[in-house]
Design a protein around this nucleic acid. Structure first.
Lengths: 141, 141
DNA sequence: GTGTTTGCAAATGTTTTGCAGTGTC
DNA sequence: GACACTGCAAAACATTTGCAAACAC
């Protein structure tokens, strides 16, 4: 058990001096297996009987974000979602469908020209992966 | 009292068969005077003594959005904000600073190239004004 | 053993809903 | 006079916090 991605995340936790607990392993495994974007609620449901207390899920996720192994994305409706970060890679962007709620991934550099323009014109440093772009997916249009 | 923008909004409400109540006028006036982005809480605070009940503020805002005279923007932290829509014009985009929370406005067509690309590649129809882009403003960087 | 992490309970902040009364058209 | 709209109370939902017990190191 424990995919390469989870092992890498665990190693990073150790390197950081953070403790590797059952709750953290469980959350990492769930995020890895789901392969996508999960809310705290999704995580608890997925882990079922062995899920940590809800408050712990939130604290665990925050620790994992702090350690840089997990990233979170704010969606316009519903809860914040979390996903594993691929070490080395830039984090992909997110497209949330206002119809069905699906979250699609997009190229990390999709907003690079926009970021450059904002930096130059208004001095705003864009953090493009932190919030999902919204719209309508192919089937909901 | 009642600026041209508010009058236009009121006219639109009438045209739609919606009723023009004190609560709706008050909310429209506050949004107009503030000139910017207000949350339901901001609105209640601004209207003070004459503010409608909080539940009514939300229902009022929803009606105004439905009527197309107000638009709302989701921010990553804190509450949804609302602003008047300029009839005819495309709605401006929003940049939220993760440091100080300020919301800046950006050109409506800033994301047009991105929207075109997404439409062509993944069939996703971007709705760029519905969610604020996040990052760091000049002073918070 | 020490200090981080967890569970529990309770609170916070935002938004929604049911229902009966009020006011606009 | 209808029916949309409002106020009130209460619930729903996502998330946070204080504190004492539990566990990783």
């Amino acid at each position: 058990m424990g995919s390469a991605r989870v092992e890498a995340a665990v190693a990073m936790l150790r390197r950081r001096g953070a403790r590797v607990t059952e709750a953290r392993r469980g959350v990492l495994d769930a995020l890895d297996e789901a392969g996508g974007h999960l809310s705290a609620d999704d995580l608890a449901a997925l882990l079922g009987r062995s899920a940590p207390h809800r408050a712990t899920v939130y604290r665990t996720l925050e620790s994992l974000v702090q350690a840089g192994v997990v990233a979170h994305v704010h969606l316009p409706h519903g809860a914040t979602t979390y996903h594993l970060v691929d070490a080395g890679d830039r984090t992909h962007l997110h497209l949330a469908c206002r119809g069905c709620g699906t979250v699609l991934d997009a190229r990390p550099d999709l907003l690079d020209p926009v970021a450059a323009e904002l930096r130059g014109t208004v001095g705003f440093e864009l953090d493009p992966a932190h919030v999902a772009l919204t719209g309508w997916c192919e089937s909901c249009r």
